[in-house]
Structure formats: C-alpha cells, structure tokens
Amino acid sequence: MLYGSIEAGGTKFVCAIANEHLEITERVSFPTTVPEETMKQVIAFFEQYKNELAAIGVGSFGPIDIHQDSKTYGYITSTPKLAWQNFDFVGTLKKVFDIPITWTTDVNAAAYGEYVFGQGKGLSSVVYYTVGTGIGGGAIQEDQFIEGFSHPEMGHMLVVPHPDDNFKGNCPFHGNCLEGMAAGPAIEARAGKKGQDIPADDPVWEIEASYIAQCAYNTTLLFSPDVIIFGGGVMKQRHMVEKVHRAFEELLNNYVKTPKIENYIVTPSLEDDAGTFGCLALAKKADLHVN
C-alpha cells in the first residue's frame, strides 16, 4: 500500500511516494514548464508504482477549482502561468490512475502537513502562511479546511503602510496588500537587493515584520487559532520571528489573550517538507474514507 504526493509549484513540481506509515521512500523534482511536458514526467514517475498506489494527494499553485460539483473541478483556473490556464489537472491524472485523488492548494497542503505532523499536531485550529515569492494562507479547523465559494486568498489582505515605508506595493490588483508589501519581490524592490543579501539589522526587516505582524493580528481576530505558522523563504531569516512577536504584541495591545507568543506565532517544524507530508496525509485520508 503506497501513497503519492504531488506538490505542484509555480517553479517546480515535487513528487513523492510513501509507505502506509507515510515514510517517504522516493522523491523527485523537476521544473514547472508546460502541462504536456511536466505532467508526462509526473505520470511516468507514478506509473512505476501503479499496482500498489492507493491514492494521490495534490497541492497545486492556483487559483484552482475546489468544488466537486463544478464542471471545472480539479482545474487550475485563472493562473498568470498562461500555459496552465484552465488546465484539467485531476482529469489528466484520472485518465491513468483510477484511484482517489485529493485536490487542494499548495499552501493548504503545507498547512495540513503541519497540522498532522508539525507545529499544529494535537491542536484543533491551525493557520499557515507561506511568505516567499508570493504570500498565501490556509486555515484548518477540526481536520477541515476553512473555505467557501473558493479557497482563501489571505495573502491579499490589505495592510496599513509602515510610517517609514514609501514603497507603494507591487501587487497589480491591490497595491498595498500583504503580498504586494511583504513578499520576496516587494523586499527586493524596496531594498534594491534580495532578502538573503540584506543584513539582519537593516531597517527593512522592521518594516517587513510590521506587515507580517498585521497579518497575525488580523488572523487572530478573525479565527482565534491555536497556532499561526509562517513558512516560506522570507521566514527563513531567523531573526524575523522575534521582530514579528514584538510588533504583534504592540498591535494587539492586550485586546485578547492569546497562547504564549513563542508557541503561538511560529515557523514550520517540517520546513520545506510541509507540503509533501500534507499531500501524503490527505492521500491516506482519502483512501481510508473510501475503504
């Protein structure tokens, strides 16, 4: 009994196989090019295990259609990646693999990985953000994703510009939304260099922390989760968490009592593996539901 994971990112795909205990036995990655080329590699990888494969979990870049009664369920929809617009992802897999296939966003998959195995293990309410080239968020309550007519687009919440920040934001839709002000490209546009080349004591990080703290503040008042997890490349700057903690406590101003700050606003314990483990856990969940 094997389970498959497809972490479909805008830059690369990561595919993995795990045993019934969700221990990874093989993993590959390849660049995200066009569907014909990339999906051919995906299918070739899983065909090796076709007789033992029980289910596949997919976490995809988006936007995607998550409604199972929709004609375009399983599609990547209005993505900026033109070759992938209106691509029937799940349908393409189903032509080869007649097994349960779970379908969610890449950030939801990462959230589920942390919920099952990481910082959210044993908790009932988890919110996860990835802060990198873009910003996305996923929320889980009692093992269910929080979503309605579509999946959340938390990365586009509006934020109040920092008083020392003259940057207007680079989101083409909203300007000074969280992604427009705090994602990796915003840091580079503001500072003139990539985040990994900016020293920890540069004032740009206090500005960045203020936007991440606003995100945590909004999340706290909207969901009151047990934990808020910030992953992605930007949060690999280890000094960021403490800066976010300070800015968050100033913003919240003791309005509500949260869990202890160092246990409440955290980085992922699974690091870059959160999405893969989330997809595997969703695949096993789907298999158990069917059987």
Rank of each mutant, 00 (worst) to 15 (best):
Y3F: 15
Y3D: 14
A8H: 01
G10V: 05
K12M: 10
K12F: 02
V14G: 05
A16G: 08
I17S: 04
V28Q: 15
V28H: 12
K40G: 06
I43Q: 10
K50E: 13
N51D: 15
N51I: 01
L53C: 06
V58C: 13
V58D: 11
G59Y: 04
P63K: 07
P63S: 09
D69E: 14
L82T: 15
Q85E: 13
K94S: 08
K94A: 04
F97H: 11
D98Y: 07
P100A: 08
T102Q: 07
T104K: 08
A110T: 10
Y112C: 03
F117C: 04
L123P: 00
L123C: 02
S124Q: 04
G134S: 05
D143T: 08
E147C: 10
F149P: 07
E153V: 03
H156W: 10
H156G: 06
M157W: 12
V160S: 12
V160G: 01
P163S: 12
F167W: 13
K168C: 06
P172N: 11
H174M: 10
N176K: 09
A183Y: 08
E188I: 07
A189P: 11
R190H: 11
A191L: 11
K194C: 10
I198F: 03
I207F: 12
A213P: 05
A216I: 05
A216P: 00
N218A: 05
F223L: 01
S224H: 03
Q237F: 05
K243I: 09
F248D: 05
L251V: 01
N254S: 09
Y255F: 14
T258P: 00
T258D: 02
K260L: 01
K260R: 12
I261L: 06
N263D: 05
I265D: 00
S269G: 09
L270Q: 02
C279L: 01
L280G: 10
L282K: 07
K284W: 08
D287G: 03
L288T: 08
